[in-house]
């Protein structure tokens, strides 16, 4: 199936619609990657969904990345959205500060975002405003840290039979 949309055309449309909220863009491996303003993220996803021409309305994935070195924008939210009609994929990024990791939930746009957002909360502690049931999903409720942030260890802390020197800890 051929792409009927081009990266440039979609980017132009986004820019003319949202102007300043589209902060930067690149095309790694032909996948349009757009960095957007955090507060406008939900609006943009909603616009992409309802736009009759683009029809970018299949949520592929939500994830987060932790960059401890980027001051004030430590957490990156990454949305992969797909247009099944036009066979066009787009990746949206919104950066959050680790002190106030808050972003609007998109559960009312995509029912499937529910668990993806809960997982992101579980792993990175991102707060999704407006999420109906924001609690841990994979880890125990009693867990008191967000394990996928870079500062936390991977290994189980209770192992005694492993010599740290041989396991790079």
């Amino acid at each position: 199936m051929k792409n009927s949309l081009t990266n440039d055309a979609v980017l132009q449309q986004l820019k003319s619609e949202f102007g300043e909220a589209i902060m930067s863009s690149e095309n790694p491996f032909d996948l349009l990657t757009v960095e957007v303003e955090t507060s406008k993220c939900k609006d943009i996803i909603g616009w992409l969904k309802t736009n009759p021409e683009l029809q970018i309305n299949y949520l592929t994935n939500i994830g987060a990345v932790h960059y401890p070195d980027l001051r004030g924008r430590e957490l990156a939210m990454v949305y992969h959205i797909h247009s099944l009609v036009n066979n066009f994929r787009i990746r949206l990024k919104a950066f959050l500060s680790i002190d106030r990791p808050e972003i609007d939930s998109i559960v009312d746009l995509y029912a499937g975002a529910n668990w993806m957002e809960r997982e992101t909360f579980d792993f990175y502690g991102v707060i999704f405003n407006g999420h109906p049931n924001l609690k841990r999903i994979l880890n125990e409720d009693s867990m008191d840290y967000f394990p996928l942030r870079k500062e936390y260890h991977l290994e189980d802390a209770t192992r005694e039979d492993k010599d740290d020197r041989f396991f790079g800890r």
């Binding site: 260890h153 991977l154 290994e155 189980d156 802390a157 209770t158 192992r159």
Partner: peptide
């Protein structure tokens, strides 16, 4: 023994 999953979530 926990196998290859020496991770924070797996019982060792």
């Amino acid at each position: 023994s926990g196998g290859i999953f020496d991770t924070y979530s797996v019982l060792q």
